[in-house]
């Protein structure tokens, strides 16, 4: 009976460790997806001159996971709330999805900032803003990757070892 209890403690703490580690490994992935999404958006806007709701929908189809969902929501808000401004719709979509992603504050700020200008100027201007956001996100991505290297393994082993420690302390 004791052994089963001990195993459960070790297992659960290991899982918590893995969970924390996956946050570190998913953050760069999600940032990458956003960057890809912005690249698609840039093409849609600059070469296709596609209207924003349509363009965001196309982006949502190309990008996987929660990030795709974010673009999908933004597109939906733009079409359904005809009284709201573009940036309001964009911010609403971000606020709604942000909890489900593992991205951090700097990424959010970059996206919020982009939302203020999205759709509000001519094509060359839009291109500049989207590229700027993508470049900023790239530096965040690099940082997220170095964090991943530093902490991912640590979290995993910490969880397992913490489990063992807890078991030892209990006995």
């Amino acid at each position: 009976m004791k052994i089963i209890g001990a195993l459960i403690i070790i297992f659960s703490l290991t899982m918590i460790g893995f969970q924390a580690a996956s946050m570190f490994s998913n953050r760069p992935k999600e940032i990458r997806r956003i960057i890809i999404g912005l690249q698609v958006l840039e093409t849609e806007i600059c070469y296709g001159s596609t209207a924003l709701p349509q363009a965001l929908l196309h982006v949502a189809k190309r990008v996987r996971g929660n990030v795709g969902e974010l673009f999908y929501l933004a597109s939906g808000f733009l079409t359904h709330y005809d009284g709201l401004s573009t940036s309001d719709c964009w911010e609403m979509a971000i606020e709604k999805m942000w909890g489900k992603t593992v991205m951090k504050k700097p990424e959010k700020e970059i996206l919020m900032h982009l939302g203020k200008v999205l759709g509000q100027s001519d094509r060359s201007d839009q291109q500049k803003h989207i590229r700027l956001a993508a470049i900023n996100l790239q530096s965040e991505e690099e940082e997220a990757r170095s964090d991943q290297k530093k902490y991912e393994k640590m979290c995993k082993s910490l969880g397992f070892l913490g489990g063992i420690l807890a078991v030892i302390l209990i006995y």
Binding site: T50, A51, L52, P53, A55, L78, T86, C89, G119, R123
Partner: peptide, 13 residues
Amino acid sequence: KMTNLISQHSLYA
């Protein structure tokens, strides 16, 4: 708002 509605949030288009 009307500008947004006419342009579908996309002045560039």
